[in-house]
Amino acid sequence: MATYVLIHGGAADSWCWGPLAAELRDRGHEVVAPDLPCDDESAGLAEYADAVVEAIGDRGELVVVAHSFGGFTGPLVCDRVPVDLLVMLQAQVPAPGESPGEWWDNTGYGPARREADLRRGIAEGTEEDPRSFFLHDTPAALAAELLAEHQRGQAATPFGKSWPLDAWPKVPTRFLVASDDRFFPAEFMRRVVVERLGFQPDEMPGDHLPMLGHPKELAERLEAYRAEL
């Protein structure tokens, strides 16, 4: 039995992991999905990692899954506790010394997003509805609940401080791209993963939150990664 440690992204809470957590528990695993202090202006990435490490406690056989902005926290956890596997799920990949606020320009996110938007017929500067932008592949009831009850403010504090690691932690790492995400376009994510992690990512269907739209497939992919160890 493994312990899956699920790290959510920015301006969110751990509710988004519910369907995936159920799939993993049905397979006999333990799931730890803490809420990060993302709306606390006094909390930075160190405090985010503290929250995860505290939630892990003395559990072992850890598989860390980091989503979106959680990509800055997941490797910090791996640097502090023994982890068998890190899976980056449509996650931001930090570079040593880079702050989350610098990530966007450093990766060329803006031009990449504009190109992806134009390919799907969205003019520059268009304000898109969150439902169609982030959650177009998520079941309607889950998307509505997320938007109504599980959005949180995102404090600015973590974005101004450098990511503290000198190198990527020495832990087996996999990356899953959500091929239908409109926020982090797949072509952009593939490039960032190759440039920063040195390998080609795997892909699965889904918008920015594939754990809501495709929890069974995601669980199967995580289990397949674990079986390769």
Rank of each mutant, 00 (worst) to 15 (best):
M1R: 09
M1W: 01
V5P: 04
H8C: 08
H8Q: 13
H8Y: 02
G9F: 12
G10R: 08
G10S: 11
A11K: 04
D13V: 07
G18R: 13
L20K: 08
L24Y: 07
L24K: 09
R25L: 03
D26W: 02
G28I: 06
E30S: 15
V31K: 13
V31C: 13
V31L: 13
L36C: 13
C38V: 15
S42C: 04
L45E: 01
A46F: 12
E47L: 11
Y48C: 09
Y48F: 15
A49N: 01
A49S: 04
A51N: 04
V52D: 05
A55C: 08
V63L: 03
V65F: 07
F69R: 12
F72I: 11
T73V: 15
G74L: 02
L76T: 06
C78F: 03
R80V: 04
V83A: 15
M88D: 01
M88K: 00
M88E: 03
M88T: 00
L89Y: 02
Q90D: 15
A91S: 12
A91W: 02
Q92I: 12
P96I: 14
G97A: 08
S99H: 02
P100F: 12
W103Q: 12
W103E: 10
W104E: 12
P111Q: 14
R113C: 04
R113F: 07
D117P: 01
R119D: 13
I122M: 14
I122N: 14
R131K: 10
F134I: 05
A143M: 09
E145S: 15
L146V: 01
L147T: 03
A148W: 05
Q151M: 13
Q151H: 08
R152T: 03
A155F: 07
A156M: 07
P158E: 10
K161S: 15
K161M: 15
S162T: 14
W163V: 08
P164L: 03
L165I: 09
D166R: 14
V171S: 11
P172S: 10
T173K: 09
A178G: 13
A178W: 08
S179Y: 03
R182T: 00
F183I: 06
P185I: 02
P185K: 04
A186M: 06
E187R: 13
F188V: 04
M189T: 12
R191M: 02
F199R: 08
P201N: 08
D202P: 00
G206C: 11
D207K: 07
L209D: 02
P210S: 07
L212T: 07
L212A: 03
E220N: 13
A224K: 13
A227E: 09
L229I: 01
